[in-house]
Write a protein that binds this DNA or RNA. Structure first.
Length: 579
DNA sequence: GCCGTTTTCGGCCCGACTGTTTTCAGTCG
């Protein structure tokens, strides 16, 4: 958790220096160092021996983009909990100003203007200003014609403020618990319930956490107190202010104790959803609000309680509208994909574009995660920012992938690319290059403000390209930041089905794109689905577990999920374009 | 601030878009 905090601080520093008008390469250096340390395996633990400090410093400096100065800041941070450069900069600039950088259309220059000339120092300030006629007038004078668009973006963020992207809470909980127990209780009997257990992509600020052990609970609280500056315990739970993701969010961890006898119903009660619980009560013809705590459920496990209602166990992810209960009663719940079924990952980046590891490192990590087939899919040339590969570079890259494939045992490595879908729907590489690739993930990355009609036509055209195998993150949304394109998902799913193209559920926690509602439509139509990690760095193979939860919400069957297929089945599917 | 050297300082992923300041600054991906 210390490491994550330090990386966040470097990133905050980078944004602050940008607003203050510092050299842009210095700004970039802090940002890169933050990502580099985050992607590393380095642990932020240090005893005070000079030996171990020197060893730690050597490790830090060996990381890309980390030099002596940032290493010194890290050591200062570990010893003091903060570093002087951070304090120096944030004595000049309010920390809450950082929030404004998550508004689309506001860069460092405009943020500086808003701060210096309108006295706006936080996202809430900005929202209030835009709602006020006089203040909005001054805002328009300052910003010019883009003012209206920025106002829309602020309102989008404001309305989505009560919906916290799940990843922000997941990151927080990993920091506190070290693990994410959803299915069965972890250390101290801890089980994360609520919307996160149900795999929702955005959640409310209240996170129910169940536990049995008082000593473990005490250790968690001690950890929160020592590690979070902005926290407070009140009757609703432990409130922690999280700055991650730009806008400040209050997350409230509600700790609920359970024992041997009330475990079953508490798991059900605190997992929800409300509609699911109401439907269960309807079945029992009971209006008593304390229904679930009644003695008839004492000593029963979750599954036993469902049996009491003559139902099979209902997976948490599908407990939503209440209709799932009737489906379960009819035996109509399909077998759902599970994380253990995932043996393939068809969207992985290396340091040839914007990933952090080379081909062999990625493959070895994949082997250690139990994967049997992966696709290396670095960016194509139009993704300049991501160091996308030119035609010459991708040809060389394909050769390197083939070499790695022959060298590394226990996994099939496909030579692929994540090829940009250009605004008109054509792909960023010509047929000569596309035909050399084992697998093509076609994804939209820019010009994401098209009309629904144009955006749908763009994706449809990409599906119809005979070399396309998967449409990557079809909407291009970033949770809590960018809406992405609006597309006619039914039309796209129908087209994908005809052309035997898979639609991706990109499991990057900031994307989760397609979302579960869209996937329900894909499922109805019967098109193929790919649950991919969009691997960039070491921790990213973890992404898929939450992606799988989102897929389970949509009741995706493992038969249509290409990540569950054997190597032979994948090869057969990919060979269709040779016919 | 980092890197890679022609070892001590210059270069650092960059093209498209937008609006307006009509020649470029600001932002995005």
């Amino acid at each position: 958790m210390k490491k994550e905090r330090f990386c966040d601080m470097l990133r905050e520093l980078s944004v602050a220096l940008d607003i203050l008008g510092e050299d842009k390469y210095k700004v970039q250096a802090y940002r890169r160092a933050s990502s580099s340390i985050k992607a590393s395996q380095l642990k932020f633990e240090l005893d005070k021996q000079p030996e171990s400090i020197r060893f730690f410093e050597e490790k830090l400096v060996s990381l890309p983009y980390v030099g002596k100065k940032i290493a010194a800041k890290a050591i200062e941070f570990i010893n003091e909990g903060v570093f002087s450069e951070y304090e120096r900069v944030f004595s000049k600039i309010p920390i809450s100003l950082i929030e404004l950088s998550s508004v689309q259309g506001l860069g460092p220059k405009k943020i500086r203007k808003l701060w210096k000339e309108l006295g706006i120092t936080s996202f809430d300030d900005l929202y209030r200003c835009l709602e006020d006629i006089d203040c909005f007038d001054r805002f328009k004078k300052l910003i010019g014609k883009e003012a209206k668009k920025i106002k829309e973006n602020v309102e989008f963020l404001w309305t989505s403020k009560s919906e916290i992207p799940a990843w922000i809470v997941l990151d927080l909980l990993i920091g506190i618990l070290g693990d994410l127990p959803f299915d069965s209780p972890g250390e101290g009997g801890v089980l994360i319930a609520g919307e996160l257990r149900r795999g929702k992509e955005t959640v409310s600020q209240y996170v129910p956490i169940l536990y049995t052990s008082d000593t473990f609970f005490d250790s968690i609280i001690a950890k929160i107190r020592s590690n979070f500056k902005y926290n407070r315990l009140d009757e609703s739970g432990y409130k922690i202010a999280v700055f991650r993701g730009g806008v400040k969010r209050d997350v409230v961890l509600r700790f609920i104790k359970y024992g041997e006898n009330d475990r079953g119903w508490k798991f059900i009660r605190y997992t929800g959803s409300e509609n699911h619980l109401l439907r269960l009560q309807e079945i029992a013809s009971c209006k008593d609000p304390y229904f679930f705590s009644s003695s008839k459920f004492y000593g029963l496990e979750e599954k036993d309680i469902y049996n009491y209602f003559a139902l099979p166990f209902i997976p948490p992810e599908v407990r939503e509208s209440g209709e799932e209960i009737d489906m379960a009663a009819d035996g109509a719940l399909p077998p759902l994909v599970s994380i253990d079924d995932i043996v393939g990952d068809f969207h992985c980046h290396t340091n040839a574009s914007d990933g952090w590891h080379d081909i062999e490192e990625v493959a070895r990590l994949a082997v250690s995660k139990g994967l049997k087939v992966i696709a290396i899919t670095d960016h194509s040339k139009s993704s300049f920012m991501a160091n996308g590969l030119s035609e010459d570079r991708i040809i060389e890259h394909i050769k390197r992938i083939k070499t790695a494939d022959s060298k590394i045992e226990g996994i099939k490595i496909l030579a692929g690319a994540e090829v940009d879908i250009l605004p008109d729907g054509s792909l960023d590489f010509g047929d000569d290059i596309l035909s050399m690739l084992d697998i093509v993930v076609a994804s939209p990355h820019f010009k994401l403000d098209q009309t629904p009609h144009d955006a749908t036509a763009r994706i449809i055209k990409a599906i119809k390209n005979r070399f396309t195998d998967i449409i990557g993150h079809p909407r291009g949304r970033i949770l809590g930041k960018r809406k992405g394109i609006e597309i006619d998902i039914r039309e796209i799913a129908l087209c994908a089905k005809i052309h035997n193209v898979a639609l991706e559920l990109n499991s990057q926690w900031m994307r989760l794109d397609l979302d579960s509602d869209a996937l329900k439509i894909v499922n109805e139509v019967g098109a193929l689905v790919a649950i991919n990690s969009d691997f960039h760095s070491r921790k990213d193979f973890l992404n898929s577990f939450y992606g799988v939860k989102v897929a389970r919400r949509a009741m995706i069957d493992k038969k249509v999920c290409i990540n569950c297929w054997s190597e032979d089945a994948v090869a057969k599917w990919l060979s269709r374009k040779n016919g």
